[in-house]
Amino acid sequence: MKRDEEFWSDDGTVILVARDVEFRVYSGVLAIHSPVFRELFSNEHPSRTVSINGKDDVPCPVVTVTDSPEDLRHILRVYMPRSHASIFSAREPSFAVVSASVRLGKKYKMNPLYEQSLDFLKHYYPSELDRWTDLRAWAPDGWPINRAIGVINLARLSGELSLLPVAVMSCTRLSDIARGFTREDGSQETLAPDDLDVCFKAKTELRKASMRVLFDTLAPTAAPECKAPATCSDVIRAALLGLHSRLDDLLDNDPFFPYTTYVKIEDGKFGVCDACLAMLEDRCWRGRQKLWDRLPEVLRINVPGWGEAESAE
C-alpha cells in the first residue's frame, strides 16, 4: 500500500483504500454529500491507530472501495479541493473527470455532481439540430474524438439515451473504433459488441441518408415564383453535377453540413434568383431537420422522445 500524495491529511478521520492506494480524508464531508458513503461509514470496519491533533493511538476506520485511485481522486478534488477555487476561471473538464463524475456520482448518489456532469455531456452531444450546428465540433475542447466511445458507455450506464445519436455519429469517423482507448488507470475503454455493430452499420446508413438530403436539395427545378426558370435550373443542375469533385468531402464531413459547403459560390452569390435561393435554403433546412428527427432510426438505435419537440414546433 502507498499513501496518496494529494489526499493524505494528518487529521483525516477515515482511510479509503482504492486498489493499492490509501487516501486519508474527512468522513464527515463525504457523508454530507453522499448517503451511500454515510451508510458505509456507519458500518463496522477494520481500524488503524493514528495521531490526530497531538493525540496518539486514535482509531481510524479503514474502508476499502472498488473504485480506481484515479476515479476516486477526481471525486475528492470536487469535495475537498486542494487549491484555491475561483468563480472567474471557467474550467473545461477532461473526459476522465466527467466519466468519473458520472460513474461515481451515480454509484454514491452524489446527485448534483452526477447531474452537472450529464448536463455537460448533453451540451456537447445534444438532441437538437440547431445546438449541434452551433457547436461545429466533434468533441469538447481537449477531448480526442474517440472519447465518444466512452460517452456511449456513459449513456448506457446513466440511461440518458439522448446522448447516443451524436456519440454514435462521432464514432463513425473513427478508423480504429474496435480498439477503443486507454483510460487513466491503464484499462481499456471499448464498446459493447452490440454498440460496436451499431457504429459499423451506422457509417454507411448515415452517408446514404445525408447524400439523399443533398441531392434532394439540389434537385434542378426552379421555384414557382422564378422569373427565369431555365437559367436557375441550369445553375442548380451544374452545382449538382459538380458534386463529383467533392466526393471525399461528401463522405467524410459532418452529414449536417449545408449544401453551400459543397457548391461553388462566387462573390457570395450562388447564381440563382432570390426566389430560387430561398427555395434551396428551405429544402436544405427541411431536409437536414427531417434527417435529424430520423437520426436514431438511421443509426438503428432506440431513443425514446427523440425529435418530438422539434417536430411539434
Rank of each mutant, 00 (worst) to 15 (best):
V98H: 01
S89M: 06
V65G: 07
S89T: 07
S101T: 12
Y79S: 06
R77V: 03
H74M: 14
N111M: 05
P93H: 07
R103L: 06
S89Q: 13
I75M: 09
R91F: 06
S68A: 02
R73T: 12
V62P: 07
H84Q: 10
S89E: 10
A90K: 14
V78Q: 13
E92P: 00
V102G: 07
R77I: 00
M80I: 15
I75G: 05
S101I: 10
R82E: 05
S94M: 04
N111V: 07
R103Q: 05
R73A: 10
P81C: 07
S86D: 12
R103F: 04
F95R: 03
I75F: 06
S86V: 09
M80V: 15
P69I: 03
S99Y: 08
S99C: 11
P81R: 08
S94I: 04
A96L: 09
V62G: 08
L104A: 13
I75N: 01
P81M: 10
V62A: 09
V63H: 09
Y79Q: 04
A100C: 03
I87R: 15
R73G: 04
V98D: 00
S94F: 02
H74A: 12
T64A: 04
V97E: 02
P81L: 11
P112T: 13
S89D: 10
R77G: 05
S99M: 09
P112D: 11
E70F: 12
V97T: 04
T64V: 00
K106M: 15
A100L: 02
T64R: 02
A85K: 11
A100M: 01
D71C: 09
A85Q: 13
P69V: 05
S94P: 03
I87D: 14
R103N: 03
R91T: 05
S86F: 14
Y79K: 02
S89F: 07
A96R: 06
V97S: 03
S89N: 10
E92A: 00
Y108E: 03
Y108I: 03
F95Q: 02
V78W: 15
A85N: 08
A90P: 08
V63I: 15
M110R: 05
L76W: 01
I75E: 07
M110F: 08
E92L: 01
P81H: 09
D71N: 11
V102W: 08
F95D: 03
V65K: 03
P81V: 10
G105Y: 14
D71F: 08
L72F: 14
A90G: 14
S94Q: 03
N111Y: 04
E92V: 00
L76E: 00
P81Y: 07
A90C: 12
R103D: 03
S99I: 09
L72V: 13
V97C: 04
K109Y: 06
S86E: 09
R73I: 07
M80D: 08
A85D: 09
R77F: 00
K109G: 05
G105D: 08
K106H: 14
R73H: 11
P81K: 08
A100N: 02
S99E: 10
S101P: 09
N111F: 02
I75Y: 05
A100K: 01
A100Q: 00
T66S: 15
S99F: 04
M110E: 06
T66M: 11
A90Y: 14
V102R: 07
I87L: 15
S83E: 12
S68K: 01
V97K: 03
R73W: 01
D67Y: 06
